[in-house]
Simulated scan of single mutants.
Amino acid sequence: MFTKIIDQDKITKVADLIDKADKAVIVTHVSPDGDAIGSSLGLYHYLIDQGLDATIIVPNEFPYFLKWLKGSKDILIYEKYPDFAEKLISETDLIFCLDFNVLSRIKNVGLAVEESKAKKVLIDHHPYPSDFSDVCISHPEISSTSELVFRLICRMGDFEMMSKDSAEAIYMGMMTDTGAFTYNSNDSQIYYIIAQLLNKGIDKDYIYSKVYHSYTADRYRMMGHMLSERMKIYEEYGAGLIWLDNDDQKRFNSQKGDTEGFANLPLNIRGVTFAVFMREDDGMIKISLRSQGDFPCNTFSAQCFNGGGHLNASGGEFYGSLVEAMALFENTLPEYADLLINNKNNLEKK
């Protein structure tokens, strides 16, 4: 058995809200990743099996290597159908907010959610959730929102009713948010949950292959170009920076999701414990930060890039040029010199 981390009062409230609802909408953050899609589809299949009319709404497109999951074709893209999405949100009885902690993380969808009279349930593992939901299930110590969805379903007494489709989506979300269980995954209860999902008939090797063996040749050419021409290592800090500008992405026909995992690449280099990936996007620079050990990349992100997240994995945005974003990163590194050097030394001692 796993530890009952979610308060029983919250379990009871969510179960009651589901029991009273006819319609439900699930929303998740902009540029949805594996955990966002996995947790949403895991909950979606459960709600459908409970007899609810459920819809998943995402702010924008999600990666092609997640579109094999059952139910993914029914996900509504807000950017494509904003009026229809807002109508569903305004008319629903219940809104589940997954894998984000503030409404700004769902961009234009946030206003519709805020104005909706529906009851709202937040399920998330990012720190410092804002106060916009009727029930807030927030546990930053848990490695993924997908794991929290599994725990919620089980605590409501419905594990036996969980379908293979739901289990498959939940496993995928847990897998992708831990780098296939290579970080933030030392909790033994994660593997207890995986065992229960396997008992539902999922094929974990197949899921891994569908996610990580489905990239395009152009994606690998872009990766090679980046590692050869767009990487800088700061040996004195144990830090690495990689980046892609718009021309790079156009040259290699970059698609949504092609840069997934790039932020981790410098961490494969001996002596690098802090990695930052910068990518030109529409009117901004998208920033992804990763670390090993105890270095708080979320603190670094909050200071420089209006971001946040977890100790070892966080994100942010910079409104300016790529050159300016890189300069800000380089100018801030010395402020974290002691933390970086101590973290590097501690890891080398292990």
Rank of each mutant, 00 (worst) to 15 (best):
S163N: 01
Y64M: 12
F159A: 04
S133P: 14
S143N: 13
D134C: 04
I153N: 05
A169F: 07
S133D: 11
P127R: 00
L52T: 05
T55E: 11
D158A: 14
D49M: 06
I123Y: 00
G51F: 10
F150K: 08
T145N: 00
M156D: 01
F65I: 09
I75Q: 08
I75T: 06
K67Y: 03
S133N: 07
I106E: 07
L69S: 08
E79G: 03
N101E: 02
K119M: 05
N101K: 04
D158W: 07
K164G: 00
S163D: 06
A118K: 01
Y171M: 05
V121Q: 02
V109S: 01
R155A: 14
G51T: 04
E86M: 14
E147Q: 13
L66K: 08
M162H: 07
L111N: 12
F150P: 00
E91K: 14
K70S: 12
D99P: 08
K164I: 03
M162W: 05
I123L: 08
E114C: 10
P129L: 11
D131P: 10
L94F: 08
A112R: 00
K120L: 07
F132D: 03
S146F: 09
A85K: 05
G71T: 02
D83W: 04
S72A: 14
F96S: 02
G157R: 01
E115N: 15
V149S: 01
I123C: 02
